[in-house]
């Protein structure tokens, strides 16, 4: 056997990750996709037959809720991503350029600390702050500034506030690494050639940090559109997302086939958005593709 025919050491190192990806993503996704084209569970129900009715049910949406749920899911995901980016970018830039190691470590701890508590706990914390009898409304009413509670919860606003709080650390950590690797001298060179602070940032630092923006945005978007606990607890009657519908179909309507179809649809629509986003950013950066 020649050396060329042997797998390289890198391949062996990648193999466990590849195996995990196949076992815990490719295989379950394939099963879910297959289930979405059956009337029932073909393993336990011999009468289950192939059908496209679950997709037809979504496409024709005679119930009048599925398209709205998809749009609501994407809208919440997009808004959460944009706000996380707006909050996260300055923080990440500050962290990446920080000279003090102690200062960097302290800010890093502050960013990571919320991630040490579970999503359910953080969501319940937001509920105690934003609900009608919560900290904000009670304080404002006691001060006589408002008569009725402000609608801070049981709607999309409350859901997005909680999601942004939960996912900003993901954006910051992703961006910090990328911005930290940008050579500061490039920005200094631009300034020495007459560019102002803002122009140097917009024309040098920002384009070079686009890979970080892309990675952070995709991470936050993916997490936001698949969020279940936070929209369920914070959304009240106003918010219905596809993950909520999927959980409903599996857990209480006992229709895993339609849930599978909803999962496939969510993934396909999200992929389309991700590809479009990638192309737009690549065009802005003047490159080909970024991810």
């Amino acid at each position: 056997m020649t050396n060329a025919a042997r797998p390289s050491p890198i391949a062996w190192l990648i193999a466990p990750a590849g195996l995990l990806f196949v076992l815990f993503f490719v295989l379950p996704f394939a099963v879910m996709t297959a289930m979405s084209f059956y009337s029932g569970n073909p393993v336990t129900n011999p009468n289950a037959f192939l059908t496209t009715r679950h997709y037809e049910r979504f496409i024709f949406d005679t119930a009048g809720i599925f398209h709205e749920a998809l749009w609501s899911t994407l809208r919440i995901g997009l808004i959460t991503t944009v706000i996380s980016l707006l909050i996260g970018y300055p923080l990440a830039h500050w962290m990446a350029r920080m000279q003090s190691r102690l200062g960097h470590a302290l800010v890093l701890m502050a960013v990571i600390a919320p991630m040490l508590t579970g999503i359910v706990v953080r969501t319940f914390a937001w509920m105690t702050i934003l609900q009608d009898k919560g900290v904000i409304n009670t304080t404002l009413m006691q001060w006589g500034l408002i008569e009725k509670p402000l609608p801070l919860m049981y709607n999309e606003f409350g859901t997005i506030v909680a999601l942004v709080h939960i996912y900003v650390p993901f954006m910051v950590l992703t961006l910090t690494g990328v911005i930290g690797r940008i050579d500061e001298r490039l920005e200094q060179a631009a300034r020495s050639l007459g560019a102002g602070r803002l122009r140097a940032f917009v024309e040098v630092t920002l384009p070079l940090s686009l890979p970080g923006i892309l990675a952070g945005s995709l991470l936050v978007f993916a997490l936001s559109i698949s969020a279940y606990v936070t929209p369920s607890l914070m959304g009240g009657t106003d918010v219905l997302t596809l993950p909520m519908l999927i959980a409903q179909q599996v857990g209480t309507s006992f229709n895993p086939n339609f849930a599978g179809a909803l999962g496939v649809i969510l993934l396909l629509v999200s992929l389309a958005i991700v590809v479009a986003y990638n192309r737009i950013l690549a065009r802005l950066a003047g490159g080909q593709g970024m991810a």
Binding site: A63, G64, I65, E68, T237, D238, Q248
Partner: peptide, 10 residues
């Protein structure tokens, strides 16, 4: 499910 979701939304 569809009917009550529409009634209660908004």
């Amino acid at each position: 499910d569809a009917r009550v979701t529409k009634i209660l939304k908004g």
